[in-house]
Amino acid sequence: MKPVNIRVGVVPVGEVPEIAPKVIASHFLGYLNLSADILPRLEHPEYAFDKRRCQYNAALIIKAFESEHFDSYDKVIGVFDVDLFVPLFTHVFGEARLGGKYAIISLFRLEKNLERAAKVALHEFGHLCHLEHCRDIKCLMHFSKGLEELDNTPLYFCKYCSAYLESAFSRVRT
């Protein structure tokens, strides 16, 4: 992919190991030709903690991110060490709104595997760029039902999703 001027920020939250945002940023550069900045670490978002479930509500965190000052960035990826959920679901590996600015991912259920973290981050970034789930199981935008499927998912996008991303990036460039 051609170099793009999309400004991506990666924010570590809580006790995330220092290496994690670096690995994610390097995957953005390697697979999307996008340089990503690592932003200052944030505290755990206690407002989103659900005492009954002992998990953090991803929907609330995304809403709160919207009031944070990330003005210099087009897309921001929050990396959490805690377990995330959205109402109705037991957990989520990551959460993003289609075409939104903020995505969050959790390392909690990824068993300290940073390649998995990079896949989830790139997948959620795809949603931020309006990409929907892809039917091609050999595409990063394919919906993974669990860790096994996530491991079988490649780190790259299929030709259709790549073409879509390219056109989305070119719109940003102009």
């Binding site: 929907a59 679901f89 929907e132």
Partner: peptide, 29 residues
Amino acid sequence: MDQKMSVMIVDDEMIVRESLFYWFEKAGH
């Protein structure tokens, strides 16, 4: 999934409606 469906979520809690809405939207329905 190779077929797009039209889905309606009926729930009195907004946060539930929203979270399912975003899930289905990302799946292309």
